[in-house]
């Protein structure tokens, strides 16, 4: 965050600009940006438009010659299917469960990291490890840990359960894995916000007789609000897209299919490109809606972000 503050970038541009002239400067800028823009268009904008187009056809890759234009029929069948709404609900459960836990744990973690001096470097380093571990590996590690045959969790808890064999306990394991993997990210973003809280403000509140809770909720949290919202937005969108953990741990069995799993199964396993594209477009719209909700609803200012 502190990296982005500071004077807006004009100070740097001017002397180069005066040498080049505005037109030439503009042309050079676009020339430099062009490769990145082209790549981004090729791999996201074009495919999403193509998905929009494909979603209007009955198109199964196993019978590629029987491609028929069906209008919005694919959307109708997705939106009336139980599988879709089940997946929406499951995704919601996982998202709300993991993001709220992450927020609480991440905040605690940030507070500890902000405060302690004991083992400070070790603490920071070990907190980064979950971030660096491949999600598939983390999911497998937790899967084996909860496994009734190999795992240590059952003996430790004195239980004998097939955790991933039942819906709610499977959700528990999935959420636990997600929380373990992504809390560090949340904590680091919150820590960055925490360092921006002016000490004077806290001291003033203390002098005025505010206790620790009041100082936290009335001073620290409001000042951190932007950082908090950005962290929440990114983590929520991440959680809605959840795929790796669920795929590795249950493959969607026990009614744990999430949106991405449904999309993957329709597209890649069943090769139903028409229906799968409709699912893709709908997931895209869900993500878009959440992003708009955050930006509009919570007044999060992201688009100006480049230079705060």
């Amino acid at each position: 965050m502190s990296k982005a503050t500071g004077p807006p970038d004009r100070r740097a541009g001017t002397n180069l600009g005066t040498h080049l002239g505005t037109r030439a400067e503009e042309r050079l800028a676009w020339l430099l940006c062009m490769p990145a823009v082209l790549a981004m268009l090729l791999v996201t904008a074009y495919p999403i438009l193509y998905a929009l187009w494909l979603s209007l056809f009955r198109y199964d890759l196993r019978f590629p010659d029987e491609r028929v234009f069906v209008g919005l029929a694919n959307y109708a069948s997705v939106l009336t299917s139980e599988v879709w709404w089940q997946a929406v609900l499951n995704t919601l459960i996982i998202t709300v469960g993991s993001v709220s836990l992450e927020l609480i744990l991440g905040m605690l973690l940030a507070l500890v990291m902000h405060r302690v001096l004991f083992l400070r470097r070790t603490l920071r380093a070990s907190v980064l490890i979950p971030y660096a571990i491949i999600t598939v590996v983390a999911a497998l590690a937790w899967k084996f840990a909860f496994d009734p045959v190999t795992g240590f969790v059952n003996p430790w808890l004195g239980l004998d359960r097939a955790w991933l064999g039942e819906r709610w306990s499977a959700f528990l394991v999935i959420i636990l894995t997600e929380v373990w993997k992504t809390t560090p990210f949340m904590a680091l973003l919150l820590l960055a916000g925490l360092t921006l809280v002016p000490k004077d403000l806290l001291d003033a509140a203390r002098v005025d007789g505010a206790n620790a809770w009041q100082r936290f909720f009335r001073v620290t949290l409001p000042v951190m609000r932007p950082a908090l919202l950005v962290a929440l937005l990114f983590r929520t969108l991440d959680a809605v897209r959840i795929f790796d953990t669920v795929f590795v741990q249950t493959r969607g069995a026990q009614d744990t299919e999430t949106l991405s799993i449904v999309g993957y199964h329709t597209l890649v396993t069943r090769l139903n490109l028409g229906l799968g594209s409709a699912v893709s477009v709908l997931i895209f719209l869900v993500v878009l809606a959440i992003a708009i909700l955050f930006v509009r609803g919570f007044g999060l200012r992201l688009s100006r972000g480049g230079q705060t």
Partner: peptide
């Protein structure tokens, strides 16, 4: 913020 799953099908094709 883009969901990668949304482009998997078209890219696959």
């Amino acid at each position: 913020m883009f969901p990668p799953i949304a482009v998997i099908g078209p890219i696959f094709e």
